[in-house]
């Protein structure tokens, strides 16, 4: 087994990938710094809008959420490229082992929650996990977390809803409609509401959790500012206006609201996706029809 030391070219490509991983995030930060004026006092608003594109039906505002999610997307693309760069059997680099571990973990999760039939979902679940987690974690570098914008999460939830409906329709439209009249036809409106509630609840859960973290962080920061002014306000010069309480304390809360909550919501969202999609698919009925069809042929 020959082991070749990484060549200069390989290292150059590596460095390029790492730089390309960081550049979109840096650009997003730069855009925020350049175009968004520093707010005065407490303000809890949605994403800032850079520009508005004219589109049919309704205009498309290019907001922070859009820009940041695109930045995260590009960053993840180069992260994936970096992880699998030069991946080969019998060459064990740290990143290859990490990539393998991640892939096997996600596949194990999908297998456990969805079964063998849905193994094709593994990259999708991986994509949701990566996009959601990195979007939420982008607030760590001072960006507006795309996941605290309702529209971003709604897009994902609607995609999941489309998948759910697609798998429900696999046994034909009549079977799908009949599913709404169970256990009794009187339950039809309730079932329809329940069906629509799925993406709505998924959206609001994710979006609400991330946004509430941001809101609490802002409120806490301003409260600490006020407390600091109250206690140290009488000190002379710059000491009186320096917010001592805002040093350190918000960071502890940030561990929960940004780091933990962000990863947890990503996990919950992907978990719910797996469960909804796998339970929506009437496996037995589908297999029965399939075998019947095969018998007829």
């Amino acid at each position: 087994m020959q082991y070749k030391k990484a060549g200069t070219e390989f290292k150059l490509v590596d460095a390029m990938l790492v730089i390309m991983m960081i550049v979109p995030i840096v650009l997003a930060i730069l855009m925020k710094v350049l175009f968004i004026p520093v707010g005065e006092g407490i303000e809890i608003t949605g994403a800032h809008v850079y520009t508005v594109l004219n589109m049919p039906v309704s205009d498309l505002p290019i907001s922070e959420a859009q820009v940041n999610s695109l930045a995260v997307l590009i960053s993840i693309l180069f992260l994936c490229l970096y992880m699998t760069h030069g991946i080969r059997a019998h060459v064990y680099t740290k990143r290859a082992v990490l990539a393998e571990w991640a892939v096997e973990k996600i596949e194990g999760l999908v297998k456990e929650n969805m079964g063998d039939y849905f193994m094709g979902f593994a990259p999708f679940i991986g994509a949701i996990l990566l996009l959601s987690a990195f979007s939420s974690l982008s607030s760590l570098v001072g960006l507006f977390a795309p996941t605290s914008d309702l529209n971003v999460v709604a897009g994902w939830a609607i995609l999941v809803f489309i998948l759910i409906t697609y798998y429900k329709l696999k046994c034909g439209p009549w079977y799908y409609i009949k599913g709404f009249m169970e256990p009794i036809p009187l339950m039809l409106p309730m079932n329809i509401i329940g069906e629509i509630a799925t993406p709505v609840s998924m959206t609001l859960r994710h979006y609400g959790n991330i946004l509430s973290g941001t809101v609490i962080s802002i409120l806490l920061a301003s409260a600490l500012q006020a407390a600091s002014n109250l206690v140290f306000g009488n000190l002379p010069g710059i000491l009186g206006s320096f917010p001592f309480f805002r040093v350190g304390i918000p960071a502890v809360l940030s561990i929960y609201f940004d780091l933990f909550s962000g990863c947890l919501q990503a996990f919950i969202f992907s978990m719910l996706t797996m469960l909804y999609v796998s339970t929506s698919f009437p496996m037995e009925e589908y297999m029965r029809r399939k075998s019947l069809k095969e018998k007829n042929n």
Binding site: F35, I36, P37, I44, T45, G46, A47, H48, V49, Y50, M55, V57, S58, D59, L60, P61, S63, A65, Q66, S69, L70, L73, A127, I128, L131, P146, D149, L150, N151, V152, V153, A154, G155, W156, I158, L159, L211
Partner: peptide, 21 residues
């Protein structure tokens, strides 16, 4: 520079996000 409301629904943003995923 304007900013969106906390809860603002925009169909194109949803589509863009969906396509991103």
């Amino acid at each position: 520079m304007q900013s969106l409301d906390i809860i603002s629904i925009n169909i194109w943003q949803i589509v863009v996000s969906l396509l991103n995923l």
